[in-house]
Design a protein around this nucleic acid. Sequence first.
DNA 1: CCATCTCTGAAACAAAACTTCAGAACTTTG
DNA 2: CAAAGTTCTGAAGTTTTGTTTCAGAGATGG
Lengths: 283, 283
Amino acid sequence: MGIQSTIEASSAKFTPAMRRVAMVIRDTPSLVLDKTIYELAATCGTSVASVVRFCQALGLSGYAQLRMSLATELGKETAQFGSNLILGAEIARSDTLQEMASKVASLEMLAIDETVSGLDYEALERVVAALDGAQRILLFGIGASQFVAQDLHHKLFRIGRNAFLLADPHEAWTAALLSPPRTVAVGFSHSGETADTVRYIEIARQAGALTIALTGSPDSALARAADECLVSRARESRLRAGAMVSRIAQLAIVDCLFLGVASQRYEQTVDALERTRDVTHPR
Amino acid sequence: MGIQSTIEASSAKFTPAMRRVAMVIRDTPSLVLDKTIYELAATCGTSVASVVRFCQALGLSGYAQLRMSLATELGKETAQFGSNLILGAEIARSDTLQEMASKVASLEMLAIDETVSGLDYEALERVVAALDGAQRILLFGIGASQFVAQDLHHKLFRIGRNAFLLADPHEAWTAALLSPPRTVAVGFSHSGETADTVRYIEIARQAGALTIALTGSPDSALARAADECLVSRARESRLRAGAMVSRIAQLAIVDCLFLGVASQRYEQTVDALERTRDVTHPR
DNA sequence: CCATCTCTGAAACAAAACTTCAGAACTTTG
DNA sequence: CAAAGTTCTGAAGTTTTGTTTCAGAGATGG
């Protein structure tokens, strides 16, 4: 229950002095945040004792609690998370920089939200378990998706996993073909139709690897070729080659994978991260 | 901007005692609302003096202000946006995969929102103009920030700009030193204290390049070294080395830059994108 | 190994919040 | 209408909470 509604509700049983306090607070609740109890009492034309009694009448322990409650409540009211939210409009050449920024930010926030709430957590569990138990992890991605693959590679490697980013076609080909037992191969492609990536996954699967598709399209060639599929959701704008939104959605999935694998051996991981951190950020 | 992002951004210049305070607050910010400064100090294993110093390091007058800021901020956060929004709690080992995913997704959405609404659009305009008019664009980034630099490189290059990603230290050094006229140099570093990156930017600036910092901390060494500064806002979780949230925030800025530059010559850009697209996605 | 500088917490200090209590104001009742 | 009782109020005193100072511990650099 909000404090301000409580004030309203309790106002019947207030004494005159308390009612004056209630009135001032109703008009400018922010006064409570700025002023001390003495100043507020003066503003209300009453004494501090009455202000304290007012707080207690509301069921609060005192002025400090009134402050906290009002502060959080005012915070809620001014909440503007997604103040940039402009959706349903294409990014146009006529847009100002600020409009474009807001639009792309909105699309990206939406993509993260949709991707994460739409995730198949059972599949995610299986993939995390597979990555955790893998002897070798192969990551395939081309073009914009390569950055995503690279990102996962960096994260997995940093916590001590045998992850390989196969950027070179020859390397990719041979790595896929020679998958040792307990190899997990992950293919990255937003469209799911990047021919090379699909091919690598097919080969790795034939070679006995467990294959995973990370794509924006659950019935794409890549998704069909792989054992498991994790789907990112993104509405790309026309300036799509930037692959801005889709990349963010894919990175969100990468983060879920990373957190999953990392948490399997939490202490160990945090330790590894902190030790590597000392190296990269000496102090 | 948000206190919690500010804590994150300033954490580089904290002393050990202050860092302990920062950590406790990052894990459970609501403690500040419930506990007195004495109790909090005890929880952090430090003295009240250090807590006060911590507040002042954030630019606040003291504990009272920290309380207010955090209270309003927590209030804001509980005002719902996405279906996943879970904030104010550290990602813990006990979390289920789904909880972890929701938390990181929330943090990432929040980071995009805070970053884009906190952007200095005048600076952004200037940077876009500079990038657009540049003869040569140098991009410096190390470690996790290198991926961000890479991303911008990929985007700029694809729309026909002379952008260079200097990954190798020798290359970076020489490229910075030999900046031809109308060179723009961009340094990427979330902390803003990555020594090499700062150095490259300093050199490039001395060589006559226009220098730009893309960092999470507006009063970091990198920001001071550069002519312009674009600030990303991110609250990283404890599994920070993943650099999950900060990376997303930086990418959001990269997208703004890209959209800005791209829209300067809209038709040309869309054309370039579509032609390169035909090559990468034949149909 | 010493000088210097930074960081830290105990203790003194200041400010704010809370409690008490005596008297004012209002109610009730004979 | 006045006396007794009740409730309400704010000044002053008390306690709690927050801030500043300062001397010593510890790190840093020569």
